[in-house]
C-alpha cells in the first residue's frame, strides 16, 4: 500500500496561485485587508460547493441548489415582512429567527422532495433535480412577482458583514460548518453510507444500507447548506430576488470537480473541496485586483479545472490519452 498525501497536487496548486498572484500584484495582494475581504467572500462559494458535494458523494447531483438558496431567502424575507407588519428592517430578533426557521423549513422541503424522487422513485438525479429546480424557480418568481425584496434586520446584516475581532462572521460560520460536515462524513454511519451508496448503489442496498433514508438525508443536508448560503447572501446584499446567483450552479459543480470529488460518486474528501474553493477564491480576488475584466475570472477558473483534470488523467494513466481506453479494458478483464 502506497501511503501518499491525498490531493497533494491541489495543495501545490494553491501555493502556486498564491505565489503567482503575489508576484503579479505585490502591493495589493499580500495584504491584511485583502485576506480579510477574501475571508468575507469565500464562505458563499464554499457553502454552495459543500451543498453540491454531499449529493455528489452519494452518486447524485443537486441542480436545484441555487433555486433552493433563493427560495430560502424569499420565504425568510416574506415572513419577516409579514410577521413585523411591513417593517422588516425593524423586526425583533425573535421574529427574525422565526422567519429564518421558516426559510430553512422551505429549503428542507425541497431537499426532502429531491431525496424522495431520487431515493424512493429512483428517478435519475439529474432529471429529478432539474424538475425541482424549475418548479422552485417558478415558485420564487410567483412569490416575488419578479421584484427585489430589501431591508433586513440587524441580525441578518451582522451575519453577513460583522467581524469577531479580525475574523469575519461568515468565515467563522464556515469553519464551524466545515468541522461539522467533516465529522458527519467521516465519523458517522450516515457519512459511511453516503460513500458506500455513491460507490455502488446496488451492493449497498444488498448490504442492508437504507438507501432511501440516506439519500433523503443527503439532499436535505444539501438544502441546509443552501439555506446558510442564503442567509450570508441576504446579509451581504441586503436583498433577495428570484434569480440571484444563478451562474453559481455550475461553479458549485466545478468546485467539486476541482476538489477531486468523483462526479460518479463514492470518493472525494472535504479537505480537497476546501482547498479547491480557496484556489478559486484566490484566483478570483487576484484577477479583480489586477483590474482585469471580471469575466476573465471565469475563464481562469475553467482553464485551471481543465489543466488539473488533464494532469490527473495523465498522471494516473501513464499512457497517452489515445491508449487510455485500451488500458481501461485490460483492467476490466483482470477484474473478471
Amino acid at each position: 500500500m502506497k501511503k501518499r498525501v491525498p490531493n497533494l497536487s491541489l495543495y501545490i496548486l494553491l501555493i502556486a496561485v498564491v505565489v503567482l498572484m503575489t508576484v503579479l500584484n505585490p502591493v495589493r495582494f499580500p495584504t491584511r485587508r485583502n485576506f480579510f475581504s477574501m475571508a468575507y467572500q469565500l464562505p458563499f462559494l464554499a457553502f454552495l460547493s459543500m451543498g453540491q458535494m454531499v449529493p455528489m458523494l452519494a452518486g447524485g447531483i443537486n441542480l436545484a441548489i441555487i433555486a433552493t438558496t433563493n427560495l430560502t431567502g424569499i420565504v425568510t424575507a416574506m415572513l419577516l415582512s409579514w410577521l413585523s407588519g411591513g417593517s422588516s428592517w425593524d423586526a425583533s430578533l425573535f421574529i427574525t429567527l422565526v422567519a429564518m426557521a421558516g426559510g430553512v423549513l422551505a429549503a428542507l422541503a425541497v431537499g426532502a422532495l429531491n431525496g424522495f424522487l431520487i431515493g424512493h422513485l429512483r428517478i435519475p438525479d439529474m432529471l429529478a433535480t432539474l424538475g425541482t429546480m424549475t418548479l422552485v424557480e417558478g415558485i420564487n418568481i410567483v412569490l416575488t412577482r419578479g421584484y427585489t425584496l430589501t431591508g433586513f434586520p440587524d441580525f441578518l446584516i451582522a451575519i453577513g458583514n460583522d467581524a469577531w475581532g479580525d475574523i469575519p462572521i461568515p468565515f467563522i460560520i464556515f469553519v464551524v460548518l466545515t468541522i461539522l460536515l467533516g465529522v458527519l462524513l467521516n465519523k458517522t454511519s450516515f457519512g459511511y453510507s453516503v460513500y458506500m451508496i455513491g460507490s455502488n448503489y446496488t451492493a449497498s442496498k444488498f448490504s442492508a444500507i437504507d438507501t432511501r433514508k440516506v439519500i433523503i438525508k443527503a439532499y436535505m443536508l444539501s438544502s441546509v447548506f443552501a439555506a446558510v448560503t442564503s442567509f450570508i447572501m441576504m446579509g451581504q446584499m441586503n436583498s433577495v430576488k428570484a434569480n440571484y446567483a444563478e451562474s453559481y450552479l455550475l461553479v458549485s459543480i466545478l468546485a467539486c470537480i476541482l476538489g477531486a470529488i468523483d462526479p460518479m460518486g463514492g470518493s472525494g474528501r472535504l479537505s480537497g473541496l476546501v482547498v479547491s474553493v480557496l484556489i478559486l477564491q484566490v484566483v478570483s480576488t487576484g484577477v479583480n485586483l489586477l483590474r482585469m475584466d471580471p469575466f476573465f475570472v471565469r475563464a481562469m477558473w475553467g482553464f485551471i479545472v481543465i489543466v488539473v483534470i488533464a494532469m490527473n488523467h495523465y498522471g494516473q494513466h501513464v499512457k497517452f490519452p489515445l491508449g487510455f481506453h485500451r488500458w481501461k479494458r485490460a483492467e476490466q478483464s483482470v477484474d473478471q
Binding site: 460507490s199 455502488n200 451492493a203 449497498s204 444488498f206 448490504s207 463514492g266
Partner: peptide, 17 residues
C-alpha cells in the same frame, strides 16, 4: 455488483450491517 462495493476497502465492506 451486489455482494461487494469493489472500489472500497475490506474495512468498509465488512461492516455495513
Amino acid at each position: 455488483t451486489q455482494g461487494l462495493v469493489m472500489k472500497k476497502s475490506v474495512r468498509e465492506n465488512v461492516v455495513p450491517i
